[in-house]
Amino acid sequence: MVGQEAGRHSGQRGDWYRSSGVRAGNRRMFQRDMEEGRVFFPPDLVPHLAHEAVRELPAARTRELTVRHLYQFLLSATQLETRIVNRGAEWIAGNRVGFEVPRPSRLDAYRIYCDEGYHSLYSLDLADQIAAATGIPIPDWDYGGFVARVKETGRAALPGEPVLAHLLQVIVFETLITAVLNEVPTNPAVVTAVRDVTRDHARDEGRHHRFFAGFFHTLWAHLEPSLRTRVACAVPSLIRACLVWDTAPVRSSLLLAGLDAPTADAVLRDVYGGSAETRRIREVSQATLRMCESAGALDVPGAREAFALHGIE
């Protein structure tokens, strides 16, 4: 029985060599002359563009904000995938997770490791192409604070269980990211290369989602009863840590656009907190919530209350 759930949900393994982006994908190229009139990122997915102080900026500054938001979208996911997901994938592939992982699932984990490295490559490649074509440089943002926040949330939620906490971080991120990626490819107003890269990424992540949702079922089955309540109550805080905006790059972008520091801080307070943030977390986390429910994680005492406390229902 060990690992059967992960195997059942991991997709068609033999098809990876024909369908994964790293095996079969083309390099996506930004063609500036073909993209006049299109946006680099959907404006409704750039929350600060709707703020009154930002609407008063010249059109050129608004365009720069949108491009820099694309950079943040591409590179923040890259940081999480290489610094968090691949570490967990390598543990699974190396059979170092505290229980025996079947070889087919270990091979799947190595395939995911390859995918994530390629996602990071083509995300940075596209960002570089757009920077060269538009003259809008990629800011020297440090995503270490975002990564550290996710890791610290795991340590605080599951003290004394570093491997388990990290695996849960990976599972949560990989079951959330598909919903985020699916918001972009169908928008015809977005430049083609951005839609294509995001679609390529979402296609691979759909397969990763199935693997990690299955792996969660297997992991849950191997947990000691005393750990199950701790794990179930830890998941909503991990969801929130992954989905709460990293506002340091946003603030930097607003300053580069010409807002003064007090105004930029006011934009962050008005846009990136309160009910809007809670609503976004609830919407994006629904697939992860269903995964927990199907595994039985919401049936342990206090679990549903913990999810509700974080606005996830």
Results as ranks from 00 to 15, higher is better:
260 D>M: 04
64 E>L: 03
75 L>D: 00
193 A>K: 10
248 A>Y: 15
54 V>Q: 02
113 Y>T: 06
187 N>E: 02
216 F>M: 04
62 T>D: 05
155 R>F: 06
130 I>C: 01
209 H>P: 05
129 Q>I: 07
238 L>F: 10
51 H>Y: 10
249 P>G: 03
251 R>I: 10
267 V>P: 10
17 Y>N: 06
222 H>R: 15
160 G>A: 00
306 A>C: 05
230 R>D: 09
250 V>R: 09
171 I>D: 12
17 Y>G: 10
35 E>I: 08
232 A>Q: 04
195 R>D: 00
255 L>E: 08
280 R>C: 11
248 A>M: 11
31 Q>K: 12
47 P>M: 01
155 R>E: 13
135 G>S: 05
286 Q>A: 13
216 F>T: 11
26 N>T: 10
304 R>S: 07
147 V>L: 06
182 N>G: 10
55 R>Y: 09
302 G>C: 01
276 A>T: 12
196 D>A: 14
248 A>T: 15
79 Q>Y: 14
241 A>H: 08
190 V>T: 09
59 A>C: 00
3 G>I: 02
212 F>P: 07
192 T>V: 08
80 L>R: 14
104 P>T: 00
137 P>T: 06
159 P>F: 04
163 V>M: 02
185 P>F: 05
30 F>W: 07
101 V>P: 03
100 E>A: 09
15 D>N: 13
43 P>Q: 07
221 A>C: 09
264 A>M: 11
284 V>W: 12
124 L>N: 09
219 L>V: 04
33 D>I: 09
13 R>F: 05
227 L>Q: 14
207 R>Q: 13
235 V>R: 06
22 V>W: 13
198 T>C: 10
99 F>N: 00
28 R>G: 01
203 R>C: 11
128 D>E: 15
121 L>G: 07
270 D>M: 10
177 I>K: 07
200 D>I: 08
179 A>P: 10
258 G>C: 09
135 G>F: 11
60 A>D: 12
12 Q>M: 14
101 V>K: 01
8 R>N: 02
65 L>N: 05
236 P>L: 00
97 V>S: 00
245 W>F: 14
57 L>G: 01
158 L>N: 06
31 Q>F: 11
226 S>Y: 09
118 Y>L: 13
61 R>C: 08
290 R>F: 05
28 R>N: 04
24 A>K: 12
114 C>R: 14
94 G>T: 03
40 F>S: 02
192 T>W: 07
199 R>S: 07
237 S>W: 11
130 I>Y: 00
218 T>I: 03
241 A>L: 03
137 P>F: 00
212 F>W: 15
107 L>G: 09
196 D>P: 12
119 H>S: 02
41 F>C: 03
39 V>Y: 04
293 E>F: 06
164 L>P: 03
101 V>Y: 01
102 P>L: 00
165 A>I: 04
306 A>L: 03
208 H>P: 12
109 A>I: 02
299 D>L: 08
75 L>T: 00
153 T>V: 02
122 Y>Q: 14
145 G>F: 03
41 F>Y: 13
271 V>M: 11
292 C>S: 07
131 A>C: 02
111 R>G: 07
45 L>T: 12
209 H>F: 13
157 A>D: 06
164 L>F: 01
266 A>D: 14
240 R>A: 13
12 Q>D: 14
216 F>D: 08
292 C>W: 03
261 A>H: 12
